[in-house]
């Protein structure tokens, strides 16, 4: 029987720690590598190229419509690997827990992490638990690192070095729902906005696109800073510019409404299940069609193209027929959304 709340002793390395590891983490994350319980996980990787990434999750609140911090911690790291062109394989999970955290919260979070890992076909193979005194962290922080196998033929995707004028820019669905779901959970307690976070692992969808043989030249997951920031980064680091049609970027009606109400621009609001792809123009249709067959890409669409004339700039054709630049987000739009 587990305690009702996290105690300092759960991080002591003693009996309570072992119990927590055994009855919660091992039980949920169960796999042959983790169950060896060594100081390191020993991985079989049959490849000369691996992708490796790490990310920490400090989202407040821990539970939000469409997910929780645990699901986010798996999806976020899986997606970082997947957009580099890699097949995500192994993940680590380190927990920094505030004394007093209800055990049932931790259980719910861990079980959703396990479920998401199964869905994304990755193994959680090593981990760590620390408990800090009340007030020394806010409820729960999670760090996950991940390793993925990178096929040589995709190794130039992460740099985007083959991007050229005329390439099409594609997004797999409506933007801004994660940021607005968190905002709603935080600001309007008891007020149901019906906005769900888009938090999802994208490696399946990306794998399906790559399997078609489409010429994918660059990918980035549009998380903090939103779609606009990804587009600005793309333009900034290239001899080309990008030009995007505002009208073609999907935004759910309720998300749009909430953004209007609170004065947010959906292009700058965080996503946790959106990939921006740059593909050769002749493959654009194939890619959107492939995405459309996957539930995570049902509203995928071409939103713009890489252009020759506007080097270093991201231009937006506004929905009313005007034209303006897009700029990177300055300062924080929303703190602690991931």
């Amino acid at each position: 029987m587990m305690e009702k709340n996290i105690l300092i002793g759960h991080g002591s390395g003693g009996k309570l720690s072992h119990k927590l590891i055994r009855e919660l983490f091992l039980k949920n994350f169960d796999n042959p590598i983790l169950s060896q319980q060594g100081d390191s996980a020993i991985l079989d990787i049959d490849s000369s190229r691996v992708s490796f990434t790490t990310d920490s999750y400090v989202i407040d609140p821990l539970f939000f419509p469409g997910g929780n911090i645990g699901k986010l911690a798996v999806c976020g790291t899986v997606n970082d690997l997947a957009v580099s062109g890699a097949v995500p394989k192994y993940i680590s999970a380190a927990f920094i827990i505030e004394e007093g955290l209800p055990m049932e919260d931790l259980e719910a979070i861990v079980s959703e992490m396990a479920a998401e890992a199964r869905k994304a076909n990755v193994m959680i193979v090593t981990g760590d638990t620390k408990v800090v005194n009340r007030g020394q962290c806010d409820k729960l922080f999670i760090n996950t690192s991940g390793v993925g196998i990178l096929d040589k033929k995709y190794s130039d995707i992460s740099s985007g070095e083959r991007v050229e004028a005329g390439d099409r820019i594609i997004i797999n669905g409506p933007v801004a729902s994660h940021g607005m779901a968190v905002m709603a959970a935080r600001s309007f307690e008891g007020f149901d906005t019906e906005i769900l976070s888009d938090c999802a692992s994208l490696n399946g969808l990306i794998g399906e696109v790559l399997a078609t043989g489409a010429d994918v030249k660059f990918m980035r997951d549009a998380t903090r800073g939103g779609l606009a920031t990804v587009l600005c980064e793309m333009a900034e680091n290239s001899p080309f510019g990008v030009e995007v049609d505002e009208e073609s970027v999907p935004v759910d009606e309720n998300v749009k409404g909430m953004c209007e109400l609170l004065g947010f621009d959906p292009f700058y609001v965080a996503n946790e299940g959106k990939v921006v792809m740059v593909v050769a123009s002749e493959d654009a249709e194939k890619v959107t069609e492939t995405m459309n067959k996957n539930p995570l890409g049902r509203q995928a669409s071409v939103i713009g193209e890489v252009s020759a004339g506007t080097s270093g700039r991201a231009l937006l054709n506004t929905s009313v027929g005007g034209k303006r630049i897009m700029d990177m987000l300055a300062g924080g739009q929303l703190p602690r959304i991931c």
Binding site: D265, L316, N317, T318, S319, V320, G321, G322, K323, R324
Partner: peptide, 9 residues
Amino acid sequence: IQKFGIPSM
């Protein structure tokens, strides 16, 4: 005015 790119029109 700037967000909708009105000067360009």
